[in-house]
C-alpha cells in the first residue's frame, strides 16, 4: 500500500480533539463557542486550546462580540481551513480506495 496519503495528512486537523471541531465548522457558516462545546461535550479550556491552535494555523476565525451585553464568541472556518479540510477528506478517501484495491 502506498503510504503517501497517510504521510500527507494535515497534523493540525488530524488530531482527536481538533478534527471534530473542524468537521462541525465545515457544516455550518459559523457556530458559537457554546454550540461547539455542548455538541462535542468538551470543557471550555480544552476547546479554547484547540481553537487557538486552529486559529494560529489560519484555519479558524474567531469573532468576539456582545449580544445583550453578554460576550458572544463565534467561530468559522477560513478559506484556508476549508481547503485544508477538503484536502484532508480527499486523503482519507484515497486511503480507503487504496485499501479496497489491495
Amino acid at each position: 500500500m502506498n503510504p503517501e496519503p497517510f504521510l500527507q495528512l494535515d497534523r493540525v486537523i488530524h488530531e482527536k480533539g481538533r478534527l471534530p471541531i473542524v468537521s462541525l465548522l465545515a457544516a455550518s457558516p459559523e457556530l458559537s463557542f457554546t454550540e461547539i462545546r455542548d455538541t462535542l461535550d468538551m470543557t471550555d479550556g480544552n476547546l479554547s486550546v484547540h481553537l487557538r491552535t486552529l486559529q494560529e494555523a489560519g484555519y479558524v476565525g474567531v469573532t468576539k462580540t456582545f449580544q445583550n451585553r453578554k460576550p458572544l464568541t463565534t467561530c468559522s472556518l477560513t478559506p484556508a481551513g476549508k481547503r485544508a479540510f477538503a484536502n484532508y477528506i480527499n486523503l482519507l478517501e484515497q486511503i480507503v480506495q487504496q485499501a479496497k484495491k489491495v
Binding site: 500500500m1 478534527l19 465545515a26 457544516a27 455550518s28 455538541t39 486511503i95 485499501a99
Partner: peptide, 22 residues
C-alpha cells in the same frame, strides 16, 4: 487496518457535520 481507521474517521466527520446542521 489503515483503511478501517480512515473509514471510521470519515464516518465520524459525516456524523458531526450532520449534527452541526441540526
Amino acid at each position: 487496518m489503515e483503511s478501517n481507521w480512515a473509514s471510521e474517521h470519515l464516518l465520524v466527520i459525516r456524523t458531526l457535520m450532520e449534527r452541526a446542521a441540526v
